[in-house]
């Protein structure tokens, strides 16, 4: 039982970390970034490069964030900016971008699985049982991430501007907020978060050009169910991630794979605005 609770908690933490970048972009820019999976992959490869350079494995996380941020800025300027008025086309264009990123990674690094040094391995005694140390660390990191994001949104100039743009972009522009700049920074931030998450999950999954893809649809569903808020995403990750663990454990690991998608579709049918808005 304790093991099940820890599985739920750690799965939720991973999902939260992986989905947060997508949510920031959707929240501020009203744009669904289907290149999210590709940015996760970039993070995984940033971790691989860290290993190749012989750096401390923890450095992979800030390094991935930096790479993601810079790439995010470039992408926003070149691809995303013309598509703000065409949200469905933006989904397609960012999907195409994901293909491009995946192919470039394949050309540079090859198709094979890459070896990445894990920062921590093994298990520790926790709540009376032995549990994966790294997964527990991920819970702490996800909590830290939630706090940092909340602080960013509520205690910084950027956060204030971003919230103004979220509420009423025209009005925000009228008040002299440079919404173009807010969008640019937001996309960079979202990409940085995605890459960081990609680096964070590498000790648990194989680093190859398809690293990010399996996470994309689940992240997307979680973000929509969350109603675009940080606590909402935490709760959505707990509920849907928890359901996934329960179904995987008691029904079938294979059906567990579609739990999030099906539950999200049903929840959104009943509450189109997501669980926690308005």
């Amino acid at each position: 039982m304790g093991g099940l609770l820890l599985d739920i908690l750690t799965t939720a933490a991973i999902l939260f970390a992986v989905a947060s970048g997508l949510m920031i972009i959707l929240g501020v820019m009203k744009l669904i970034n289907f290149a999210h999976g590709a940015f996760l992959t970039i993070g995984g490869y940033a971790a691989f490069v860290t290993t190749q350079l012989g750096w401390n494995p923890w450095l992979a996380v800030p390094f991935a964030a930096l790479v993601g941020f810079v790439l995010g800025l470039i992408v926003e300027r070149t691809i995303v900016r013309p598509l703000y008025t065409r949200p469905l086309d933006a989904i397609l264009a960012t999907w195409g971008l994901g293909i491009i990123i995946g192919q470039v990674i394949t050309i540079v690094f090859g198709r094979e699985v890459q070896f990445v040094q894990s920062p921590i391995s093994g298990a520790i005694e926790f709540l009376g049982q032995s549990y994966s140390t790294y997964r527990l660390v991920l819970v702490a990191l996800a909590a830290l991430l939630a706090v940092a994001l909340t602080a960013l949104l509520y205690f910084t100039r950027f956060g204030l501007n971003a919230r103004a743009v979220i509420m009423n972009e025209d009005l925000a522009r009228g008040l002299g907020i440079d919404s173009t700049r807010v969008r640019l920074t937001t996309f960079g931030l979202g990409a940085a978060l995605a890459s960081m998450a990609g680096a964070l999950v590498t000790p648990l999954i194989s680093v190859d050009p398809n690293l990010g893809l399996p996470w994309l649809v689940n992240s997307f569903m979680l973000v929509l169910v969350s109603g675009i808020s940080i606590p909402g995403l935490m709760v959505a990750s707990l509920i849907l991630g928890g359901a996934q663990v329960v179904v995987s454990t008691y029904v079938s690991a294979i059906l567990g794979g579609l739990t999030i998608v099906v539950l999200a579709a049903v929840i959104l049918r009943l509450r189109p605005q997501g669980l926690f808005s308005g």
């Binding site: 598509l83 086309d89 397609l92 264009a93 195409g96 971008l97 293909i99 491009i100 192919q103 050309i107």
Partner: peptide, 12 residues
Amino acid sequence: LLVGILFVVVIV
């Protein structure tokens, strides 16, 4: 890669 680039260019 080429298809991906073409796709993005066409959409944009």
